[in-house]
Deep mutational scan, measured.
Amino acid sequence: QTVHVKGVQYHFPNPEEAVKFALKVAKDLGGRVEFHGDEIHVE
């Protein structure tokens, strides 16, 4: 599972961890989380 944050990719073997990370980052940055297939983008 890959999380993209402002052009940087973070790889997580566990999808659940990836989602938790993405939600935390989005909250910290005041952004939103978008799901694109296997990828999660924080915009």
Rank of each mutant, 00 (worst) to 15 (best):
G7Q: 04
P15A: 13
V19K: 10
G37H: 09
G30Y: 05
P15E: 11
T2Y: 07
A22Y: 02
K27I: 09
G7N: 06
R32F: 12
G37C: 11
A22C: 05
E17W: 06
V42L: 03
F21D: 03
G7T: 04
H36F: 11
L23I: 13
K6R: 12
E39P: 02
T2G: 03
H11C: 13
N14L: 06
E43P: 04
A26N: 01
G31R: 03
F21R: 02
A22H: 00
V8S: 06
I40E: 00
L23V: 11
L29E: 05
K20N: 08
V8I: 12
D38W: 09
D28W: 13
F35E: 03
P13T: 13
V8P: 01
V33F: 04
H4G: 02
E39D: 11
P15V: 14
G31M: 14
N14Q: 04
E34T: 13
V42E: 01
V3I: 03
F12C: 09
K27Q: 12
I40D: 00
G7W: 04
H36S: 07
V5K: 01
I40Y: 04
V19S: 05
G37E: 07
F12T: 00
T2H: 06
H41I: 10
Q9P: 09
F12Y: 02
L23R: 10
G30W: 06
D28F: 12
P13F: 10
T2M: 07
V25D: 00
I40W: 06
E34V: 15
G31A: 11
F21W: 12
G7P: 02
L23A: 10
V3R: 01
H4T: 12
K6G: 14
I40L: 07
E16A: 11
A18S: 02
A18T: 01
V33K: 00
Q1G: 09
D38Q: 11
R32H: 11
H4Q: 07
V8R: 11
F35Y: 11
K6D: 14
H11D: 06
E34F: 15
L29H: 06
A18E: 02
F12N: 00
F12M: 02
V8D: 05
F21S: 03
R32L: 08
V5E: 00
G7M: 04
H41G: 02
E17P: 01
F35P: 02
E16M: 09
N14R: 05
P13D: 14
A18V: 00
V42S: 01
T2R: 07
H11M: 08
A26W: 03
E17G: 04
A22E: 02
V19N: 06
V3F: 00
K6M: 14
K20I: 09
V3H: 01
E16L: 09
N14D: 10
F21V: 03
E17S: 08
F35M: 10
V33T: 02
H4E: 05
P13E: 13
Y10A: 01
V25E: 05
K24P: 00
H41V: 10
G37V: 06
E17F: 05
E39M: 08
E39G: 14
